[in-house]
Write a protein that binds this DNA or RNA. Structure first.
Lengths: 108, 108, 108, 108
DNA sequence: ACCGTGGTTAGCTTTC
DNA sequence: GAAAGCTAACCACGGT
């Protein structure tokens, strides 16, 4: 952050009492007042999503394991998946290029 | 596998003809007979999961963006999240170490 | 570089003879003229450093082996070392976070 | 470790009293008596070596940076280095194979 | 002797 | 354009 003074924003509508906050053990939700609450909320949302992501990665590992148990070589599989992904991306990029061309010649 | 024999397991009951392969567009579902079908299935499961993962990553980015729009500094947020994660990991690892010690001294 | 033009820079002052190059077995040091020589030099520096790194890794392995020979459990050792490293990192990150906070509230 | 009771070895010459254990601040150098001291020593040796390794990695990064500053594309460089490494390994493996052949036919 | 696991590293993406 | 965080491939070790 070069000069950003705003990484802990003052709530603009900061006129409410912050009284009724309960225990909340270890999260400093009032150091910044309502902003602290918002921050906490954002962080928890992210952590929740990252948990889900981790679970998904776990699932993927399990599929690989199962495939391996069936006799497939995971390294080969990874290579295939990677290649397919490249195909898709390449196709996508080609399509974007096509769109560009079309718009360039007025074909909307 | 010494040198990648069997990374494409032959179905043991491999007596069908694979003759009718025509277009072969992108999914070689019969080159290896039934094994090919299984492989395809595995790969599609993985690709599906990776799609979900990508969506989740997108969501995370959006939350960061929203937070940023609210005035928070994402760098700070990331650092906080990273620290919280480290806390969790450290706790977990410490427990594992303790287990290790216990087993080492015969405390089952 | 948008699409890798110039990943093999022409020396701008390209007027010297490249004559006196000796044997140099397999490194094409004149395909790009003097640039080739520079590239070769960079690459060899890196390879040298990587050699040293590999040697160090070897040393580490040996220490583990010696410790194991003395009766210590390497898994435990690794965990301890990992925890200590986490400690250091956490401390460092906490300090960075503090800095971030300070700059946020204008405490230069 | 299944049944390894020896991950914290008793020093063979374990006849000293460990009585004076006092502070034990952060380095438990006497919880296991002399073994603790040995363990600490091993760990510090490893940490030292890892420090050196990290420094070396830093150096490598710097060389890449310098090369980049000179106009080279680091991605290309990495590829070259990787290829050269593969060459070396391949050659080494070929030589091992040759050794094998030689020993097989009694050419010691 | 092999497999599985965890750690490591390099490359990519995104940020500033 | 540089720096950092993230991700995914790689490798080596320990366990079975």
């Amino acid at each position: 952050m070069s000069d950003n003074v705003a990484n802990f924003p003052q709530s603009d509508t900061y006129d409410e009492a912050e009284g009724t906050r309960g225990a909340e053990s270890a999260t400093p939700s009032d150091v910044g007042g309502v902003a602290g609450a918002r921050l906490k909320s954002f962080i928890e949302r992210i952590e929740r999503l990252e948990q889900e992501k981790a679970a998904l990665m776990e699932d993927i590992k399990e599929v690989y394991a199962e495939a391996k148990g069936t006799g497939f070589d995971t390294k080969t599989m990874r290579k295939i998946i990677s290649l397919r992904k490249m195909d898709r991306e390449k196709r996508r990029e080609s399509e974007e290029l096509l769109e560009l061309y079309k718009s360039a010649i007025g074909m909307y």
